[in-house]
């Protein structure tokens, strides 16, 4: 019981830090600081996912969100200015009303959600339990996430690999193949 209470406070702390970092990202104008803080935001998310026992998701978030997208944002930042344009000083009451209404609706929906970790919740009860029970017999590897990803859903993962390949293809066709400064000079003419 004490154990559960402690993780709960860790979650509150992480979410409070996420909020603080989010506000800082909105308020700051120095783009370098903003890029670094988005990396911090991803790392905090990853820590929170670990606390929710979603280690595979946390791993991906840390590697992609905090690692590679920070570097790509830095590369993009080098192409633009270092400071963002000052935002308009006016109060956006319509936007505030939309955000407040959406937030209120989310809080209204909280009592209908299943308790965290509830074995009878729809996400855990049917297909999830089935995979948990069948993996030791069908695949015989300990990590059910890998079994679902690579074997049961191998077709989907193949599609995802093709999507990643297509993303690179699109970027390379738009930005050039990055194989030398010569190409860059030609494009700038």
């Amino acid at each position: 019981m004490n154990h559960a209470d402690l993780t709960q406070y860790l979650d509150y702390l992480l979410i409070a830090m996420l909020l603080a970092v989010g506000f800082a990202i909105v308020r700051l104008r120095n783009l370098f600081a903003v890029v670094m803080l988005t990396g911090v935001y991803s790392l905090l998310c990853a820590a929170w996912f670990v606390s929710l026992d979603a280690v595979d998701v946390a791993f991906t978030e840390a590697a992609v969100g905090a690692g590679i997208s920070t570097v790509l944002m830095l590369g993009a930042m080098l192409l633009t200015a270092r400071e963002s344009e000052p935002a308009g000083a006016g109060r956006h009451w319509a936007a505030f009303a939309v955000v407040a209404a959406a937030g209120a609706a989310l809080f209204f929906a909280i009592p209908d959600m299943p308790v965290y970790g509830d074995a009878e919740s729809p996400a855990n009860a049917y297909l999830g339990r089935d995979f948990m029970e069948r993996t030791p017999q069908d695949i015989q590897i300990p990590n059910v996430v890998t079994a679902v990803l690579a074997s049961y859903r191998g077709y989907d993962t193949f599609g995802e690999t093709v999507v990643v390949f297509t993303a690179a293809l699109g970027v390379m066709l738009l930005l050039g193949f990055g194989s030398g400064a010569r190409r860059k000079d030609e494009e700038e003419d």
Partner: peptide, 25 residues
Amino acid sequence: LVELGVLTTVSSVMLAIFYAFAGRV
């Protein structure tokens, strides 16, 4: 084997995107 394919594509794609961005500055 399948994870090896994913590894090859993902690491190459991430590098390709980085080269495409960083090759411009």
